[in-house]
Amino acid sequence: MIRPAHSPSLTTYTLKQAIVLFIFCSVSAPSHALTIYTESWPPISYMADNKLTGMGVEIVQALQSKLDNKDAIQLVPWVRGYKALLDGPDVMLFSVGRSSEREKLMIMLGPIAISSTSVYTRKGNAKRLLALGDGIYKQAIGSYRGSIFADTAAKKGFSKIDLAPTPQITATKLMANRFDLWVDGSVVVASVLKEIGHSADEVEKVMTLDSLELYLAFSHQTPARTIQEWEEALIWLKKEGLFQKIHRKWLPNEAPPLEVNVLKPPA
């Protein structure tokens, strides 16, 4: 059979098919698989009605939708998630407070929220505790194990830190008069208290120790291409206003951070 002059050859047709298929796969291929962890730290991440929810969870899910990433988000104790992040590879943990020490250990993408590291006490106690002057730093202060809040309290001079597995246990101890001081992130205090059956009106702030940016953290072995994909997705989320919408839903009294930073350990 004589093929018409304008008809492409079989070889040319197959080559064009291959090119189209390659382009399609390159564009639509899902992002690199990750093990994604978070902790119970409302309203950033927590379980409600047997469903994982929270501001950080919704942000990560929006990024996953953009990236066609279907990796499950697992709720685990903070110490377990943090250890997995450091041991790697291909682990993402949120939300992680930024510090100069952590910048050397992991890749950080964000910020997704800005909190403060603050010290709280039961309502009516702040004046008495502040009257101690430097003696306040000798008082027992509660925090949860492995947290940046415990680290910050130690750096600021608190010498007696009572460590618990979760912020909920720490808050319960404060309300049960086990100690008079509790250090945690300002954006979660009301939600943590609500989880244990108390309200924010039952505590008062004693002092603020530091400002704190919250990030998505990736193990340092994570491929550069994966980090770039998540960075581009976060830039898109903030540019389109979807990030701001989620942030206002959960933290209506806080300003959403609009910049996007990638912090990598030194080579």
Rank of each mutant, 00 (worst) to 15 (best):
M1K: 14
R3H: 12
S9G: 15
S9F: 03
L10C: 11
T12H: 12
Y13K: 14
Y13A: 15
L15C: 13
K16Y: 14
Q17I: 13
A18I: 15
I19W: 13
V20Y: 13
V20Q: 13
F22D: 13
S31Y: 02
A33H: 08
I36G: 01
I36T: 03
T38Y: 05
E39H: 01
I44N: 12
D49R: 08
T53G: 04
T53F: 03
E58W: 06
I59A: 11
I59R: 11
Q64W: 07
N69M: 01
N69C: 05
D71G: 00
I73E: 00
L75F: 03
V76A: 05
P77L: 05
P77G: 00
R80E: 02
G81N: 01
Y82F: 03
A84P: 00
L86P: 02
L86D: 04
D87Q: 13
D87A: 10
V91Y: 04
M92C: 02
L93C: 00
V96N: 03
V96E: 10
R98M: 09
R98A: 12
I107C: 06
I107N: 03
I112F: 08
A113S: 14
A113P: 04
T121C: 15
R122D: 07
A126Q: 06
L129P: 10
L129R: 05
L132Q: 05
L132S: 07
G133V: 03
G133P: 04
G133W: 01
G133M: 01
Y137E: 01
A150R: 05
D151A: 06
T152N: 06
A153P: 05
A154T: 07
K156N: 06
S159L: 03
D180Q: 14
D184T: 11
G185H: 08
S186T: 15
V187W: 05
V189T: 11
A190H: 05
E195I: 05
H198R: 14
S199C: 09
S199V: 09
V206T: 10
M207S: 15
L209Q: 02
D210K: 05
E213G: 09
E213H: 10
Y215Q: 09
Y215H: 14
P223F: 00
A224M: 12
Q228I: 08
Q228F: 12
Q228T: 09
A233T: 09
I235N: 10
G241K: 12
G241P: 11
Q244R: 12
I246Q: 13
P252G: 00
A255Y: 06
A255N: 11
P256T: 13
P256M: 11
L258S: 15
E259A: 06
K264S: 15
